[in-house]
Amino acid sequence: MLDADFFHRWMTAAADSVDREANHLTELDSAIGDADHGSNLHRGFAAVRAALDKEPPQTPGAVLMLAGRQLIATVGGASGPLYGTLLRRTGKALGDAPRVARQQLAEALGVGVAAVAQMGGAQAGDKTMLDALLPAAEALGTSFGAAREAADAGALATVPMLARKGRASYLGERSIGHQDPGATSSALLITALAETDGASGGDA
């Protein structure tokens, strides 16, 4: 079972990963976006880390809701409300249980991903974060490792896609051939989840 501390460590691992990959995310965003994805997420996850360390919430749901609120407040780009909605809705779906099973997290993440799709009006194949998140939420029902592989494969699969949402969509066919920055950061988030599970001794 996964407790609040597990979720806290997941968010910390995500913040570490965004620190390491910020330049790469911004490079990807320079190709088809406005070159701020890395710095925006860096700022957002620094705020998440600070808020969670200051007053660690007591339940998994509360950890994700606090993290989501920080992202909405601090990111400054579209990824703020989108990741904020993902974490808040996932956290809300977990309720106030002190511990949750992986299967419950998979279902809650599915709710969060659906909320992101509704908020952004995007669907699978539009070259967005959903292309990593939709298969990851599905595969999390199997294992953490499967979710990570599905997210990575989903992010890679955005390379040949034509962007249909956001600034990249203005580029039309010139958006083809570039990996989507949002799908890439989504894969980082899911990888951080799998690594947190690995560090705590295997599939919960």
């Binding site: 400054g76 780009g77 579209a78 990824s79 409300p81 908020m119």
Partner: peptide
């Protein structure tokens, strides 16, 4: 105007 402005306001109205 665009993008994150739309999504941020939508998110603020949806929750909180």
């Amino acid at each position: 105007d665009l993008g994150s402005a739309v999504l941020t306001v939508k998110t603020m109205l949806a929750e909180g």
